[in-house]
Nucleic acid binder design. Structure first.
Lengths: 148, 148
DNA sequence: CCATAATACTTTGATATTAAATAATTGGAT
DNA sequence: ATCCAATTATTTAATATCAAAGTATTATGG
């Protein structure tokens, strides 16, 4: 497996590592999110619920920044969560441009129910690697990830 | 950085590695595809052109399988490439269900023009890591990736 | 030969995603 | 006080993406 490119050693090595990185992330991502089907949540919706659960009420731009998505996207994802009454929008009076988003009781209950499944799925998927290998993977990936 | 989850060591380690893997892949992916803006191609469209260039004419289901996307998705992506006359559809007479997709001259010219930029971007991005580290990353990711 | 199953593609409906344009609000400078 | 720039959210248009339903074609079993 790997690249079909005929190039220098450096090129082949970089392309190969890159392809495997992207494939691994896609594969892991699809495995760990499989359980979301059962509760009819998309990955983005889950991301919002998780962020709100761990960080508390956030504005839409905070959420967009955290999840590395555009503001327009957040508007839609939160629309869909709001339709199911899993989150609530609140326009604050101190700055009326800002929309604060928080979990409803139903949203809190749902994320509390599914987060353990999420953790279990990640542990199971990542346990293909040993503890040392996971740490090594983390170190390498951190250097490639967005510098914040 | 990492997870906000309070759990066992095993859980924290797995979540941490998982988050960094997915973030790294997103970051790398966005960096290496940045040059596609200049030629107004999407990542999916580029994927199709690249596959056709390296592997020659393929059926839509071959493409869907290679690129790990649904058949319905391929229909749309190829529609959009066909509108720009970068690829051509051919219904074969031996099995009229199958649509073979091939590069047009314009498509070949375009992929030949941009593929070197693609390689250069990957080399530049991945060179954050040493050669040995890239190989190690490749080994770890291969084990996490889809088993084919 | 014919009914049925399997395959390949298309269509539809829903959600995601971005960039760009718009609207509302705020803060600062003159 | 008023104008201008920055910020925040929404809308729009285009593409992506999947699952599921639909259509056409081919293969198979009796």
């Amino acid at each position: 497996m790997g690249t079909h490119h005929q190039g220098t050693e450096q090129e082949v090595r970089a392309l190969d590592a890159c392809i495997k990185l992207v494939r691994a992330a896609e594969s892991v991502s699809s495995q760990i999110h499989h359980h979301l089907e059962a509760v009819n949540l998309t990955v983005s919706q889950f991301g919002v619920l998780e962020a709100l659960w761990h960080l508390g009420t956030l504005s839409q731009s905070d959420l967009a920044h955290k999840l590395l998505r555009s503001g327009g996207n957040m508007t839609l994802v939160i629309d869909n969560l709001e339709k199911r009454q899993l989150v609530r929008r609140d326009r604050q009076s101190r700055d009326r441009r800002v929309v604060q988003v928080c979990l409803t009781d139903a949203g809190t209950q749902l994320i509390q129910e599914i987060f353990p499944r999420h953790v279990a799925a990640i542990v199971q998927t990542m346990n293909i690697l040993t503890a040392t290998e996971q740490e090594e993977l983390g170190r390498l990936c951190r250097r490639l990830g967005r510098q914040e």
